[in-house]
Design a binder for these strands. Structure first.
Length: 758
DNA sequence: TCGAAAAGGTCAAGGG
DNA sequence: CCCTTGACCTTTTCGA
């Protein structure tokens, strides 16, 4: 910098609180932390904290623990993909300097950036917090093919300058340039997260007093067309303001056609607080950036519509699942309400037995004469389970499955459902015919191909034979494996904590509802209420993102994958994870998925308005479709083809039901999420071996827990099959939601839920 | 085209 | 003596 030039006030280093010299790898840091991060990339896995992993990082002691320092870098979002180039606009710099001169508090950069949040002179491709924190499953996103094609044609590619190699310098994705908003937004997110956690805790405390629910539990009570019934703090937010303005134009921002995406600046942009007027154009020829963390941002596949996509995906699943069994709720409600267990934050407390009690099957089949659909759901699940059981009892089938599993795992075939490979692997582990001393170490965890990449991430404690020879299943190995499983399980508490953080709140709410202290808030055909619900959906997505991405970032070993792989994996598993953790609230005749922190259950009626009668009917009528499967086919055909060959919507419904009836603990659900998160069959992974290894490790752990159950093998198989169809139903639902318009909802909905005084 | 900002590179200093 | 750190330098990139 020229003599006399005044540097931009970057404030303190986010990592060690020393003086920041600039934005390095996406985060304002000092030269030291920049250097540490730069040097750590190829060898981070060697770091180990000897002080419990909670070291304080300050300028004086920052060299004491490289592990914690590097982890801090990751936590604050440093990424080699987060390259930012370019200058800070002159006007912004002058402002910053002026404010810095006046500023008495040391954290100048944050203050500056806060003041600049709404500046129009900033680079334009700034997306909202929601956008950058959001994921839409890459394969199931409902962006139109035309849109994707157009993006590609316009050269909307991101050039990634890799630290060590330029081989992967061009990947086909969309991005945005990191700018100084990101400092602010990152800190804002951190702050928001803390605040929300605090709010959540406060709310849980308040929930002891039922009076606190009175103010909001029935939005219909004061609905008057002006949304005066909304909580005041929510009404004040810019987010609400923008959304409201948009919605007053009478149209919920759905993707109506591709041509409008370029021109519109009102609907979706308003909702997202996006300053961009054309997210697509401004994204082109940019470098990969990463404002908050590398997982969260780069797959803004469309600067304009991504928010809409993502928000929709969060809300929509519960919407459709709610339409499960319309006429079945009364009996279910009565019987289930007696089975509500005490909710708890503990991971291994079994989930509410409301829909997972030993008698749930009976309940499902005895919910009245008017519920043929539900009965069929149940009947079909019984059929599948029985078939799976019969299959697994045949030794020749086991052999075939074994061979097929091996061949499929090596060629990554597309002819098998993603969940099925897991199931097949797990079947080996869980097979009661196996004669191993330790079932958890019986499959390809120990094949020769994996040995070279054995030491990754948090499974580095594995001490295997690295010569490339097959490892004997000795007792020593079994012991090591057991220890490793225990170590990983211990480390797994943190991600599970994150994953279920909001669940404690949701469960409390649900518990209150089931015990009659709450009523299901009304939603009727009122357009205003629909707008309200839509806004709530938009708002709620942040929480799901925190859950899913927090879980991903804390999953042992996951952060050791390349950023690109982390991104692909997380996007791939995003919705499935969401559905798994919320499956306990998708039950009976309604969805009880809470719109996080908005204190509203959204009902089946609203879902119908968004999804339409057709999809709802499809789901209820699943039994008819299910009969189209040729059940007399060989059992192997059923096991291997049922998922992708004819993945109808109804199966997704089934999966939600079955997941809940398995009565999984939080840790087990968390493990399933980790297994889906580290799905090695995701396309174009850079380090597929590593992903495969970690995936196998989680399968080991899950198997070690799961196979203690009776009939674990068939349960595991059916479980993974059910899981694997979650993606399909997501896709269908998204199509429905993006065609949704407030002016012409797909179905006339009448009020169906009666609010009765308690 | 200039020059600001960030990446990558270099090497003296310091610690083990 | 070797390795790590981090301040400083050079190169790259892109906003003005």
């Amino acid at each position: 910098m020229p003599i006399g030039a005044i540097p931009f006030p970057f404030g303190k280093c986010k990592i060690c609180k020393d003086k920041a010299t600039g934005v390095h790898y996406g985060v304002a840091t000092c030269e030291g932390c920049k250097g540490i991060f730069k040097r750590s990339i190829p060898k981070a896995h060697k770091y180990k904290c000897f002080f419990g992993g909670q070291c304080d990082i300050s300028p004086k002691n920052r060299n004491r623990c490289k592990s914690c320092r590097f982890n801090m870098c990751l936590q604050f979002g440093m990424s080699i993909d987060a390259v930012k180039m370019g200058r800070i606009p002159k006007t912004e710099k002058e402002k910053a300097l002026a404010e810095a001169a006046d500023e008495t508090t040391p954290d100048q950069i944050n203050n500056f950036l806060q003041s600049e949040e709404h500046s129009s002179s900033f680079p334009q491709n700034v997306c909202s917090i929601e956008q950058r924190h959001s994921f839409a499953p890459q394969k199931v996103c409902a962006v139109s093919p035309q849109s994707l094609e157009r993006n590609s044609e316009e050269g909307n590619h991101m050039h990634v300058q890799h630290m060590n190699t330029l081989e992967n310098s061009e990947i086909e994705t969309n991005s945005r340039v990191l700018n100084h908003h990101d400092f602010h937004e990152r800190s804002e997110i951190e702050q928001n997260f803390k605040e929300r956690l605090q709010n959540c805790q406060e709310f849980q405390e308040k929930s002891q007093n039922e009076r606190n629910f009175e103010n909001w539990r029935n939005p219909r009570k004061s609905a008057n067309g002006n949304c005066q019934n909304l909580p005041m703090d929510f009404q004040k937010t810019e987010f609400f303001e923008m959304s409201w303005q948009t919605l007053q134009k009478g149209h919920i921002p759905a993707l109506q056609d591709t041509s409008s995406q370029h021109n519109t600046t009102s609907g979706i942009n308003s909702l997202s607080q996006c300053h961009s007027t054309d997210g697509i154009n401004s994204l082109s020829q940019r470098h990969s950036t990463d404002g908050i963390n590398s997982l969260s941002q780069r797959h803004s596949t469309d600067g304009i519509n991504s928010l809409s996509k993502r928000h929709s995906t969060d809300g929509i699943n519960s919407l459709s699942f709610s339409a499960v069994s319309e006429t079945c709720d009364k009996n279910m409600h009565e019987s289930n309400s007696q089975n509500v267990q005490t909710f708890s934050n503990n991971h291994d407390v079994l989930r509410p037995s409301t829909f997972s009690s030993p008698n749930s099957d009976v309940q499902m089949t005895t919910c009245g004469p008017n519920v043929p659909s539900t009965s069929k759901v149940h009947f079909s699940s019984i059929v599948i389970e029985e078939l799976v059981r019969q299959v697994l009892e045949k030794p020749e089938v086991t052999q075939i499955l074994h061979e097929r599993s091996n061949s499929l795992s090596s060629q990554s075939s597309t002819s098998i459902g993603e969940g099925q490979l897991d199931a097949l692997r797990l079947a080996e582990v869980a097979s009661p015919n196996e004669n191993n001393t330790n079932n958890a170490v019986t499959y390809n965890m120990f094949d020769a191909e994996n040995l070279a990449s054995r030491q990754i991430g948090n499974v580095q404690q594995i001490n295997f034979d690295m010569n490339g020879t097959e490892v004997e299943k000795s007792e020593e190995v079994a012991k090591e494996s057991k220890e490793l499983i225990n170590v990983t399980l211990e480390r797994f508490k943190a991600p599970v904590d994150l994953l279920f953080h909001y669940q404690a709140f949701n469960r409390d709410c649900y518990k209150n509802h089931k015990s009659g202290e709450w009523k299901v808030p009304m939603t009727n055909t009122d357009k205003e209420e629909l707008k309200f619900i839509w806004n709530q959906l938009m708002e709620g997505v942040k929480y799901y993102n925190e859950q899913v991405m927090g879980f991903a970032s804390k999953t042992p070993g996951f952060s050791k994958f390349t950023m690109a792989d982390q991104e692909k994996l997380t996007m791939n598993a995003y919705m499935e994870i969401w559905m798994m953790i919320n499956s306990e609230f998708l039950c009976e005749n309604e969805s009880y998925v809470l719109l996080n922190n908005t204190k509203v259950f959204y009902s089946k009626a609203t879902m119908k308005m968004i999804l339409g009668e057709e999809l709802t009917t499809l789901m209820l009528d699943f039994g008819r479709k299910f009969s189209q499967y040729n059940l007399s086919d060989t059992e192997i055909g059923l096991l291997c083809a049922i998922r992708l060959t004819n993945p109808d919507t109804e199966i997704g419904l089934l999966s939600a039901i079955r997941l809940t009836t398995l009565n999984l603990s939080d840790t087990e659900i968390g493990l399933l999420c980790a297994i889906r998160l580290t799905n090695p069959d995701v396309e174009n992974l850079e380090e597929k071996d590593k992903v495969e290894l970690l995936n196998s490790h989680f399968l080991d752990i899950f198997a070690s827990m799961f196979n203690k159950r009776p009939h674990s093998s068939r349960m595991a198989l059916s479980l993974f099959q059910y899981m694997s169809v979650l993606k399909t139903i997501t896709q269908l639902q998204q199509e429905a939601i993006f065609n949704f318009s407030l002016d012409s909802p797909p179905v006339e909905v009448v009020t169906e839920i009666e609010v009765t005084p308690t």
